[in-house]
C-alpha cells in the first residue's frame, strides 16, 4: 500500500465522520431534499469524467468519458434544480392564501 492511498483512506474516514455529524442534524421534514441534494453532490464524478474525456488517448476512453460526462451532468443539473424547486416550496409559506 503506497502512501497516497493511505492519505486518501484518512480523508475518507474523516469525511464519513463529518457526514454523520452534519447529516444526523437534518430534520425528517427535509429528508427528501437531503436525498436529492446529496445525490447532486454525488455528481462530483463529473470531475473524473471531464479528465478522462479530455485526456483520452484512445477513442474508447473518450467515448466512455463522454458518456460519463452526460450521465454525471444529468445528475448534477437535475439534482440541484429539483432540490432547489423543493426547498422553494418549503420557504414560500409567507405568501399563503394566494388561492
Amino acid at each position: 500500500m503506497n502512501e497516497m492511498i493511505l492519505i486518501s483512506i484518512y480523508i475518507f474516514v474523516l469525511a464519513i465522520f463529518i457526514g454523520f455529524e452534519v447529516i444526523t442534524k437534518v430534520p425528517p421534514l427535509l429528508h427528501t431534499p437531503l436525498m436529492s441534494g446529496s445525490n447532486a453532490i454525488s455528481g462530483i464524478t463529473i470531475v473524473g469524467a471531464i479528465l478522462s474525456t479530455g485526456t483520452g488517448h484512445s477513442m474508447l476512453a473518450t467515448v466512455l468519458g463522454m458518456l460519463a460526462v452526460i450521465t454525471a451532468t444529468i445528475n448534477v443539473v437535475g439534482g440541484y434544480m429539483v432540490t432547489d424547486r423543493m426547498l422553494g416550496m418549503f420557504t414560500k409559506d409567507k405568501k399563503k392564501g394566494a388561492k
Binding site: I5, F12, A15, I23, M35, S38, N39
Partner: peptide, 21 residues
C-alpha cells in the same frame, strides 16, 4: 472512483453522500 483517480474531492463528496444514504 476517487480512489482510482487519487482525487480527494471525489472521496470527500462521495463519503458525505454515502454517510447521508
Amino acid at each position: 472512483t476517487g480512489f482510482v483517480l487519487t482525487n480527494n474531492v471525489l472521496i470527500i463528496a462521495g463519503a458525505l453522500v454515502g454517510a447521508s444514504g
